[in-house]
């Protein structure tokens, strides 16, 4: 891919990101309830004080002007004050972000590690026992309500069997020195096996709950695209040349067969990001998703606004990157 093409693609991103920002801004501006009054609740504030805070927060200016100022500040990483933490939204979000990243990556890793081998095997041994099991499993995976399944796993494995911890991301005693804020990574950097175990044990249930629907979908996609690829002429040709089936799959089929998996995996990060809200609530995970849910109920708009924007931008960028990767991997795709 030439630099010009790359630039063009990046150029396509800008209107999308702008549109996303407009919608997020409108969503929160049109929400009933006055942030100034919320911030001054419990404070015996006179209407004059509320009006003054409204002015300070710029709420009395026209919508367009507020939008421009919102975008201007957002570009500098300033999303205003979190109404209840009374600290900058960006700071509060950054504190909770590593946990969410860790959980999302773990869920994605789980989904990929389960779905790709299963999908490939199901396609290769089409109609066999494994194929049927995988198909049924995938159906269950997309049909399970995550919040409910998470609760059942929590009660089963953490409370009753006591195999896994009930809540949180790591125990204090096992905590590695903080470098990245990602417990698994920090444990490995510190070469601490106990920490790694502890962090992984905390991750197992939330990551499975979050990653299961994605695993199911990716399994289906991989299976279908592998079946497609295995029927292609060049595979038949390779077989005719006398190459072993295992080698054919490894050398030729996988490379092409996994292309759709990449795209769909990127698309499904959307459900990972959304699912975080539910899973973190169920498992007491100290991430951003739980914070967003809590913030909605106290109408902490600046935080909700910034978080929704962050999720959307992440999602757009992930899909953009997957798109690039797809183009790079697949020489047949031209712009």
């Amino acid at each position: 891919m030439t630099p010009v093409l790359l630039l063009q693609r990046v150029g396509h991103l800008v209107p999308v990101l702008l549109g996303v920002t407009v919608i997020v801004f409108l969503m929160m501006s049109l929400t009933p309830g006055d942030p100034a009054e919320i911030m001054l609740a419990n404070q015996n504030a006179t209407p004059a004080q509320v009006a003054m805070l409204r002015h300070d927060m710029g709420l009395d200016r026209p919508l367009m002007e507020r939008f421009v100022s919102f975008v201007g500040h957002a570009l500098q990483g300033d999303f205003g004050q979190s109404l209840f933490h009374r600290r900058p939204v960006a700071t509060v979000i950054m504190e909770r972000l590593p946990a969410t990243i860790e959980l999302s990556v773990a869920a994605m890793a789980f989904a990929l590690l389960v779905s790709i081998p299963l999908g490939v095997m199901a396609a290769v041994y089409r109609g066999g026992v494994l194929d049927r099991l995988a198909t049924v499993g995938a159906l269950l995976g997309v049909s399970l309500p995550g919040f409910w399944f998470g609760i059942l796993m929590l009660i089963g494995f953490a409370v009753n069997l006591r195999w896994l911890p009930v809540s949180g991301a790591i125990d204090f005693a096992a905590q590695p020195p903080g470098i990245t804020g990602l417990m698994v990574v920090d444990s490995m950097l510190a070469l601490r096996g106990d920490s790694l175990m502890n962090a992984l044990a905390h991750l197992v249930l939330p990551a499975i709950t979050l990653g299961l629907p994605m695993a199911a979908i990716l399994m289906r996609v991989t299976r279908a695209s592998m079946l497609e690829v295995l029927r292609q002429d060049y595979i038949t040709f390779a077989e005719a040349k006398g190459l072993g089936r295992g080698r054919i799959i490894a050398l030729h089929a996988l490379k092409n067969g996994l292309l759709p998996t990449v795209t769909v995996a990127a698309m499904e990060t959307g459900s990972l990001l959304g699912g975080n809200m539910v899973v973190e609530t169920v498992f007491g995970w100290p991430g951003l998703g739980r914070l967003v849910v809590e913030s909605i109920f106290v109408r902490n708009y600046p935080l909700v606004q910034a978080a929704v924007l962050l999720y959307a931008v992440t999602y757009v960028v992930v899909n953009f990157l997957a798109d690039l990767l797809y183009t790079v991997l697949n020489p047949r795709v031209r712009m």
Partner: peptide, 24 residues
């Protein structure tokens, strides 16, 4: 298509949660 692209930029549940917070 522009509108579609923008809406696709939102994770589904996040979008719905934002709207429900707004509309009640």
């Amino acid at each position: 298509s522009g509108l579609v692209d923008v809406l696709l930029g939102f994770p589904y549940l996040i979008f719905a949660v934002g709207l429900m917070a707004m509309m009640g």
